[in-house]
Design a protein around this nucleic acid. Structure first.
Lengths: 136, 136
DNA sequence: CAGGAATATACCTGTATAAGAATTAGCGTC
DNA sequence: GACGCTAATTCTTATACAGGTATATTCCTG
């Protein structure tokens, strides 16, 4: 029924978990398990929220070995671009999102393989460090 | 639980009816019955959505005789200001909102008292024209 | 190909809320 | 004060969706 694109964007962002996900992905691409860690989500919850966002075009995913890497699309509808600017302006002062950014940086420094995996060249092998992550 | 202000704004705008209301009020203050007419809402639906918006600070209301005039607050949180800019940029092309603006202009021209009532000086008497509106 | 890790899906349940009907309340005219 | 108009509230019902459990799928390693 030709739902306005902007309305779909609002439907995505009106849930706190999804707002936090988009806020994090605006900083860096991330795999599902890192989003779980940072946001304290169950695997199912993370996966379902990401599916919701993916189906509405707010995020894209690509497989890298056994991980799914989620990121913001490079070609973004203007509706989303407005929201990203708004997030950047309005969220940094709020404790929830400050905390998320802190945890994001912890993940980045703890996991030597994140930079490789989430970067623009996702083809580097990361086997040994992957095991390191899961056992730590 | 200290819900982020931006999340509340999204909760308001993620409903199509409320998005259309805010879009209209960004053009001009309006009384409830005009919003009903323009959007094709029942009295109850209009009133409840407006209460939802009012409780979250996205709109304010003032009584003028037997009408409640709703408008955007003059002092707006930045979260709302971002959305107003976004609406102005993203919505004009969509048929739903174009239609709403058309109907808004029809109301404005049909009803000689709208300008008086919704203006910054809401004290002018409008009795005769009010009756005219209801019977036409 | 067996097994494990990461992710997705199907199903069920609970909750928030949108919509409708009926009622109530406020303001103005007569 | 009775009546008409505008708006708000209450109650009930219906629907969307978030969360949980169990299961399926895909990829990698040995």
């Amino acid at each position: 029924m030709n739902k306005p694109r902007l309305l779909e964007v609002y439907n995505c962002l009106c849930d706190e978990t999804r707002l936090r996900i988009v806020h994090l992905l605006a900083q860096s691409p991330l795999c599902v398990c890192h989003l779980q860690d940072i946001l304290g989500l169950t695997q199912v919850s993370a996966s379902k929220h990401l599916a919701y966002l993916r189906q509405r075009g707010l995020v894209v995913s690509r497989r890298h070995e056994q991980w799914m890497i989620y990121s913001l699309p490079t070609e973004r509808p203007r509706e989303l671009d407005w929201q990203l600017r708004c997030l950047q302006d309005c969220l940094p002062t709020h404790p929830i999102f400050r905390g998320d950014l802190r945890k994001l940086n912890a993940v980045r420094s703890d996991c030597c393989w994140v930079a490789e995996v989430v970067g623009t060249t996702p083809t580097a092998p990361v086997h040994s460090s992957r095991i390191k992550r899961r056992t730590e």
